[in-house]
Amino acid sequence: MPAKIDPDQVRRIARLARINLTTDELEQFAGQLSDILNYIDQLSELNTEGVEPTTHPLKISNVFRQDQIGQSLSNEQALANAPRTHGDFFAVPKVLE
């Protein structure tokens, strides 16, 4: 298990997370995330062979419903918070040149 991460790795993670980071942030996060990961590494002391993972604290299962048309937001409501709109659509910068 790698104990520390360097600014280059932070840059790669930031690309996956779609967040631009400044050079200062890369340095700072490398140090802080390394500290946190070192702390987290104590979990490797525990033997978890054969243990089932818990994704939810209580036993719950999928909830299904009939596929019926119900009430939903109007176009106007759905677009009300959009940074940019075009007619009935969300507008974004050009995807294809």
């Binding site: 490797s44 818990t54 604290p57």
Partner: peptide, 14 residues
């Protein structure tokens, strides 16, 4: 190493 391990320890804590 991290996420799955954590979910297993979560079971042990429970």
């Amino acid at each position: 190493a991290y996420y799955l391990k954590a979910l297993k320890v979560r079971t042990l804590i429970r």
